[in-house]
C-alpha cells in the first residue's frame, strides 16, 4: 500500500489530477461473468460505450472494437442496453 500524504502535502481541497490518481485495475471485481460480443450483429450505435460506468468499452475512432477487461466489472449494463442483442454475458 502506498504511503498516505500528510495534510500539508495534499493538493488544496484534495483536488485530484489524472496524473496523481492511482490506476487501480478494477477488472478483478468481476464475479464470474464477462461481456462477449458478436460483432456481425453490432450496428455501432455506441449505447454500450455511453452507458458503461467504467469506460471499459473500447473504440477505434468512433467505431466499437470491444471491451477493456482490465477495467470491466462485469455489471452487464452493456448487454442490457444493446438494441440488437449483440452483447451477451458469458462465464469467465
Amino acid at each position: 500500500m502506498a504511503e498516505l500524504s500528510t495534510w500539508e502535502s495534499l493538493p488544496i481541497a484534495g483536488a485530484v489530477r489524472p496524473s496523481g490518481a492511482p490506476r487501480t485495475k478494477t477488472g478483478g471485481w468481476r464475479t464470474g461473468e464477462k461481456p462477449a460480443v458478436d460483432v456481425s450483429l453490432c450496428v455501432n450505435c455506441l449505447l454500450c460505450w455511453l452507458y458503461c460506468p467504467d469506460s471499459a468499452v473500447t473504440l477505434s475512432g468512433e467505431t466499437f472494437t470491444g471491451f477493456d477487461l482490465e477495467y470491466c466489472k462485469g455489471c452487464g449494463i452493456c448487454a442490457d442496453v444493446c438494441p440488437v442483442a449483440a452483447i451477451e454475458m458469458v462465464p469467465e
Binding site: L4, S5, W7, A13, G14
Partner: peptide, 21 residues
Amino acid sequence: TRPTTQGPFAMPDYYFELRRQ
C-alpha cells in the same frame, strides 16, 4: 486542458487531513 476532480469523496484516511488543511 488540465482536468481535475474537484470536491472528491474522502474516506477516513483523508477526510481528517483535508479538514486540518
